[in-house]
Amino acid sequence: MTPLVDVVIVNWNTGGHLRTCLRSLARADQSRLRVGEVVVVDNASSDGSAQDLRVTGLDLRVVRNAGNRGFASACNQGAALCRSDLVLFLNPDTELYPDTLRVTGEFLRTPGARRFGIFGARMVDARGRPRTSCSRLPSPRIYAGGMTGLDRLAPALFPPHHLRPEELSRSGEVDQVIGAFFLVRRPLFAELGGFDEDYFLYLEEVDFTLRARRLGWASYFNAEAWVYHAEAISSTQLGPWRHYLLLCSRTRYMFRHWPKRQAWLLTGLSLAVEPVARLVGAALHGQSPNVRATLAVQRAFLGWLRRGRPPGPPPVPPARARQAAPPEPVPATHEMRRSV
C-alpha cells in the first residue's frame, strides 16, 4: 500500500512562491508516496499570498491566524489537523521536482529506513546548484566560530554550522536536515509533543532533531530527492530584526541543552564580541555597517534576557511587507537539471 503523507506549509508574505509550491505538490509523482491533506497556516500575511488558494488535485485547507503566531506554533497548529502516519513540513519558498516524492517514498519502503524518524532532501537553486541542505547539531565551538568569524578563518578548529555541498555527495545519516523539507513520522512527532513553541523563529527544527536523537531516532539525507529552495523569502522582510529572533532562539537552545556555564559564556560572546564582528565583517565586504540597527537589536536582546520569556514578533515591526519576488522556474527532470 502506498504510504500517505500530509503536508503543512506555514506562510507569511511569500507572494507567488506559495502558489508555485502548491502546484509543484499537485504535479509530483505520487506513485510511491501519496499526498493526503495539505494544510496552509497563514500567519496574518498582508500581501494577499494566502488568498484564493485553489489547486486542482490537492485536498487543501487554509487556516488564517489573526496575528503572527511564530513558525513553531503554526507548524503544530497545522499538524494537529493532519491524520497520516507521515507529516511533511514544507517551506512555501520551495518547489518539488516531479520525482521528489517518488524518490522519498522508495527509500521509505526499504528496511534501512526503519531507524530514521526524520527525512530531508537536497536543496538546490533554480539552476540545480546545491544550497544548504544539512547542518551539524550546534556545539559551543560551532557557535563560537560563527559569532567571531573563526569558522571561516580556522574551519578545522571551528567547523561551520552548515555542511558544505562536497560533504553531502551521497545519501545517509546526518546530524540534522534543514526545515525547508522536513518529513517526520507522526508517532515521533506526537511523542515529542511537536515543535517547542518557545522558539518563535529559527532553531525549532534543530531542537526537535536533538530531542529525537535522544530517543534513538536519527535523521536521513536523501541526496536523490531534489527540492528547489528560494531561501529566506519571509525572513528577509524582517531586516535586522531577524537577527534578534536568531539571538533569542540560539540563547534558548543553549540554556536548554548545554551546561549553564557554557551557555553563559556563549551569551557573553553574543553581547560583547558578535556585534563588533558583524560590523567589521560588513565593512570588509564593502557594505555600510548599520551601527544604529545593530545597537537596537542588542538592546532588544538584552531586554529579552531580562524578561526571560519566549520572544514574540520583532519589537519594531518591519516596513510594510513587500511582495515577494516570483520564483524562478526549475528544471522539470533530473536529466534537465544535470545539464545546466
Rank of each mutant, 00 (worst) to 15 (best):
R23V: 04
A72C: 10
Q77H: 12
L183D: 04
S84K: 06
H285L: 15
D175Y: 09
L33H: 09
C134N: 01
D52S: 11
R83T: 14
G112Q: 10
R129V: 10
G193V: 11
A50H: 00
R61L: 13
I142F: 07
A223G: 05
A66S: 15
R102P: 14
A296S: 15
L108Y: 05
W217C: 11
A332F: 08
V10P: 02
L238W: 11
D6L: 11
P317S: 09
C75Q: 12
P314T: 03
W226F: 13
A74P: 01
S84T: 11
R338K: 15
S24Q: 04
E197D: 09
L215H: 11
R141S: 14
I9W: 02
Y253H: 06
W12N: 03
E95I: 08
D47H: 03
V35R: 05
G15F: 03
L58G: 00
L245F: 02
P313I: 06
A180G: 14
L215T: 07
F107K: 05
H285V: 13
L271E: 00
R164C: 11
R306W: 13
R211I: 09
L246Q: 12
S249I: 03
S133C: 06
A263M: 07
R213V: 12
M336A: 15
L266Q: 04
A232E: 15
P165Y: 08
G179H: 04
Q323F: 00
W258E: 00
S46G: 14
L201A: 12
D99F: 04
R136D: 06
G117L: 01
G179S: 09
G268I: 00
S135G: 15
F181H: 04
R61K: 12
M254W: 02
R122Y: 06
L305G: 01
P289C: 05
R213P: 06
G15R: 00
M1L: 15
A72V: 11
Q237E: 09
L4K: 10
E173L: 10
K260D: 15
G48C: 01
R131T: 10
V63C: 10
E274Q: 13
F89M: 07
F189A: 02
T2Y: 13
E173P: 06
P165D: 01
E37P: 06
F71T: 14
L153P: 11
R34E: 13
H161V: 12
L279G: 08
L81Y: 05
F158N: 03
L96I: 02
S24H: 02
E204I: 06
L305A: 04
A277H: 08
L4D: 13
R23D: 07
L60S: 02
P327E: 01
H229F: 08
G216C: 07
D125L: 08
V40L: 01
T132F: 10
A113G: 04
T251F: 03
P160N: 10
V87L: 15
H257T: 01
E166V: 15
M1N: 15
L269S: 08
A66T: 14
P289H: 04
S45N: 00
D196C: 05
Y244C: 03
T100L: 01
P159S: 08
E95T: 09
V291D: 12
Q237C: 00
